[in-house]
Amino acid sequence: MKKQWTLTQDFLKGFWEQNPIFVQVLGMCPTLAVTVSAINGIAMALATTFVLVCASLLISMIRKLIPTQVRIASFIVVIATFVTIVDLVMQARFPGLSKALGPFVPLIVVNCLVLGRQEAFASKNNPLRSVLDALGMGIGFLMALFVLGSIRELLASRTILGYQVLPDAFTPWLVMILPAGAFLTLGLLMGTANWNAMRQKRNAEQAVLDRYRKTTASSV
């Protein structure tokens, strides 16, 4: 029972509680750069998730063979290998997307999120837990990129994933395509996420206090 719980926990924590973007603030460069539209965000997140899962699996399998001194270099070689695979496959199968994402596909190799998970999790845990952790983080990353991409696409060209959502009367916000729009949207989203987390924490504390008051009142 306990074991099952840890596995679920490994998987789920990346969704919200330890969301790579909103909470851990990792992997910001691709997040800000490619989210001009929702589809770019999804493609980027899927590519990153693939690299993250494969690298976590491999590294957790060979974690006992890697000497600690050269671990970072070894992680990077493993990650770079999978990134090269993704890059070549994308160039061959999805030339349009590959062009739109530009140098940001090879740049997955320096995404702090990928290296961070290897260092913090995969190098210390067994393959099953590492893959679950990587999948969870990947999905959390996907959600963050999708939300950010949708908001920017919606306000800049009235569409989400190419389907028109807002009426023509809505004046597109040009700033959302510009780099400034990315920074502002992510800043506001992150602030909202923090606000929500703080409110929940306050509510939980209040609930504990209330219960305490009730028990003391009844005992007196």
């Binding site: 700033v175 400034a180 920074f183 800043g187 992150m190 602030g191 909202t192 987390a197």
Partner: peptide, 23 residues
Amino acid sequence: IPGPFRGAPITLIVAGIMALAFS
């Protein structure tokens, strides 16, 4: 600064304004 915006969020918003200026 309002509590939830301290740290990374306000930094991003400031960066947004800087990016606007640089554009």
